[in-house]
Write a protein that binds this DNA or RNA. Structure first.
Lengths: 211, 211
DNA sequence: GTCTATAGACTGATAGAC
DNA sequence: GTCTATCAGTCTATAGAC
C-alpha cells in the first residue's frame, strides 16, 4: 500500500484543508507534509512547486463544474427548471468533493502567470452562469439582473462551502440554494412548484443526485 | 501635515487593501509600510503587532454593524420592512467604508486568543441576523429556514464586497441585495412592493441612505 | 520516493540614534 | 515618530545519499 498516486491524492486533500483554514500564502509546505506524514522535501517528488498543488486542486473543482454548466446550457426547454436543476446538482457536487474548495480562490495567486489557465477557466464558468440567467430573463421567465444574480450564486455557493467547513454536519444544501435563487428571480413566483417538479426530471442529466 | 492619527489611518487602509488581495498571512508588514511610504519598523510606532492592525480593522467593521442590526431588532412593526431596510442600509454601509473588508475574516487568525473579542463580536452579529429572520418566520411573514437565510445573507454581502474590489465601478448593491433576499423569503411574494415602501420609511433610522 | 542537510530569501519584531 | 541595523525564526526549493 501507499502507492505514489495515493500519496499524491493525500497531498491534495491535506493542502486543500490547510488552504481553507489559513489561505494559500498562510500555509507552509511543512504543514502539508506533516498532515500527510512525510517530510517537507518529499512533496517535491509529486509537485514541482507549491503553486502546482493549487493548480491541481483548482482543476479538480473547475473542470467538472464547467462540464455541468455546459450540460445545463445545452438542455432543451424553459430556463427555470434548467437553472434549478443545475444549482441543485452543482452545489451538491461541490459539497461532495473529497476536499475543501474554500481556500482555492485566492485572487492574488490566480493572477500569477502560472495559474493563467485556471483563471481563464474560472472566468468562463462565471460567464456561462450569467448566460444561464440571461437566457431566462430574455424569455420572460426571470425578472432579475443577470450580472447581479451571477454574483449572488457565487456568494451563496461559497458560503455553503464555508458553512460545511466551519459548522458541524454537512447538510444537503443544493436544494435550499436552488429554491432560494429561483424564488428570488422567478417572474411568476406561483410557478415554483411546477419548476421544481420539472427540475427533478432534469437533474439526473446534470450529475449525481445527492440529496 | 501627516499627523500621527493620519498615518495610523493610512496604515489601516493600506493593510486592508493588502489583506484583501493576499490574505492576512500573505501580507508582509514591509508591503504595508511601502504602500504608506514609511519603513517597516515605523509601523510599530502605531501598532504593537501585525495582529492588532487586523483587530482594529475588524472593530471598525463589526462595531457599527452590530449597532445597525441592534437598531433593526429594536424597531416596532412587522419584520419584512425591517429586514429589507436593514439589508439595504447594511450592504451600502459596508461598501462605503474607506477600506476593503474582504480579507479580514480569516478564520485561522480569528481563532487566536488575541482576536477573541473580535470573534465574539462576529458571532453576536450572526446570531442577531438569524434572529431578525426567525422573528419573521414566527410571525408568518417569511417562509424560510433562518439558519440558511443567515448564511445566505453573509454570502451575498461578502460577494458584494468582492465584486467592488475585483470589478470596476462600485454600484449601489444594498437595494438589489435587499430585494433579492425578500423575494426569496416572503411568504406572500405579492407584498414586496408594500414592503419596499415601508422599508424606505425605516431606512433613515438605520444609517445613511447611500443609494 | 523518501530521506537529511542546507541554501538563500523573506518574515515579524526589537534596539537605539536622531 | 521615523530612521538604520539587525536578530532569530521561517519560508520554498534543491542536492545528493539510500
Amino acid at each position: 500500500m501507499a502507492r505514489a498516486a495515493d500519496t499524491r491524492d493525500r497531498i491534495l486533500v491535506a493542502a486543500a484543508d490547510q488552504f481553507a483554514a489559513r489561505g494559500f500564502h498562510g500555509t507552509a509546505t511543512r504543514d502539508i507534509a506533516r498532515a500527510v506524514g512525510i517530510r517537507q522535501p518529499s512533496l517535491y517528488s509529486h509537485f514541482a512547486t507549491k503553486q502546482l498543488i493549487l493548480a491541481a486542486l483548482l482543476d479538480a473543482d473547475l473542470v467538472p463544474a464547467l462540464d455541468r454548466v455546459d450540460r445545463a446550457l445545452a438542455l432543451d426547454g424553459p430556463c427555470a427548471p434548467r437553472l434549478h436543476a443545475w444549482l441543485h446538482a452543482d452545489v451538491d457536487a461541490i459539497l461532495s468533493l473529497p476536499f475543501d474548495v474554500r481556500g482555492l480562490y485566492d485572487d492574488a495567486a490566480l493572477a500569477t502567470p502560472e495559474l493563467a489557465e485556471q483563471a481563464a477557466r474560472r472566468a468562463r464558468l462565471h460567464e456561462r452562469t450569467r448566460r444561464l440567467v440571461a437566457d431566462g430573463v430574455a424569455a420572460g421567465e426571470f425578472d432579475a439582473d443577470p450580472g447581479f444574480v451571477g454574483h449572488a450564486i457565487t456568494g451563496l455557493t461559497l458560503e455553503a462551502v464555508r458553512e460545511r467547513s466551519t459548522g458541524g454536519a454537512p447538510p444537503g444544501r443544493g436544494l435550499p440554494v436552488a429554491d432560494f435563487v429561483l424564488r428570488a428571480v422567478l417572474a411568476d413566483p406561483a410557478s415554483l412548484a411546477a419548476v421544481r417538479a420539472a427540475a427533478a426530471r432534469l437533474r439526473p442529466l446534470l450529475g449525481p443526485a445527492v440529496s
